[in-house]
């Protein structure tokens, strides 16, 4: 019974919830697993702290919230600071390199950074940074098959924006894959 607890954190407007939605959908609709997404948000729609929690499991998810994050996705410094101490021993931190100053978390925890906002801007729309993060997360965590994630991206973004979002996903995924391969070579 494999259970992965994921927390995604950032500020409102970064697409935190959508990235959680895509991960959950990839697992439950396109990978025959169970995935429960919950979210919490401040009263304001934009700019406030925002967090999504996804539990991915081979069996039905019973407790819907994260207890210790196996994966912490940090898109903002605030979000990282709030949740950095609630990591599983062998957890991973996936973070926005230009926005989040990460710390060393001890032996078991791995940090993976990506300049996702910059990549999104290069693709022409800053707004797709969350999809870059999803691609990156997919590659560095190996949580879900690339195909399932791509399919979830394709069916979850506004129609007409599929191509751009898939480019963003691929960008993040490729960057993550390279990073992992390089790490393995140097290790």
């Amino acid at each position: 019974m494999a259970v992965t607890e994921i927390r995604i954190t950032g500020f409102g407007g970064q697409g935190v919830i959508l990235s959680g939605y895509i991960i959950g959908k990839a697992a439950s609709i396109f990978n025959e697993q169970h995935a429960t997404l919950t979210q919490s948000f401040g009263p304001e729609a934009r700019g406030s702290a925002c967090s999504a929690q996804v539990i991915v499991s081979d069996d039905r998810v019973l407790y819907p919230y994260v207890t210790k994050a196996d994966i912490l996705v940090a898109m903002s410094k605030d979000g990282y600071m709030t949740h950095k101490n609630n990591l599983a021993k062998d957890g991973i931190v996936v973070y926005e390199k230009d926005l989040v100053p990460v710390e060393e978390h001890g032996a078991g925890v791995k940090n993976y950074g990506i300049p996702a906002t910059r990549f999104a801007e290069e693709l022409g729309r800053k707004i797709v940074l969350n999809i870059v993060m999803v691609g990156f997360l997919g590659a560095v965590s190996g949580l879900l098959p690339e195909k399932a994630l791509r399919k979830a991206v394709e069916t979850s973004v506004p129609s007409g924006t599929e191509e751009l979002n898939l480019q963003a996903f691929d960008k993040g995924y490729q960057y993550g894959k390279q990073l992992v391969e390089t790490a393995e070579v140097t290790a």
Binding site: Y21, G24, S28, I29, H34, A35, T36, L37, T38, Q39, V61, P64
Partner: peptide
């Protein structure tokens, strides 16, 4: 609220 805002298959 938990069930209402919980997303699943």
């Amino acid at each position: 609220e938990c069930v209402g805002h919980m997303t699943e298959k």
